[in-house]
């Protein structure tokens, strides 16, 4: 997990803890999953681009 993602998840967790109603808590809880998936997709797509750019069969 990179620093930026860590910071973002911490901020969202803080809002989740502060929430006084179930709906708001549920929203921030699920928002963490979305953010997690965003960073995973970024990393996986960057890796795939790197992998394809360095494919020896294309040299």
């Amino acid at each position: 997990m990179n620093q930026r993602e860590n910071w973002l998840l911490e901020q969202i967790s803080g809002l989740e803890k502060q929430a006084t109603d179930f709906k708001t808590r549920a929203y921030f809880h699920q928002l963490k999953d979305l953010v997690d998936e965003q960073y995973r997709r970024i990393e996986q797509t960057e890796d795939e681009i790197d992998g394809r750019a360095w494919n020896p069969s294309e040299w």
Binding site: L34, Q38, Y39, I42, T45, E46
Partner: peptide, 15 residues
């Protein structure tokens, strides 16, 4: 948070 989420969205689209 909103800025970050939208920036991530744009980055994913671009990638």
């Amino acid at each position: 948070i909103q800025t970050e989420i939208l920036a991530n969205h744009d980055k994913i689209q671009e990638l």
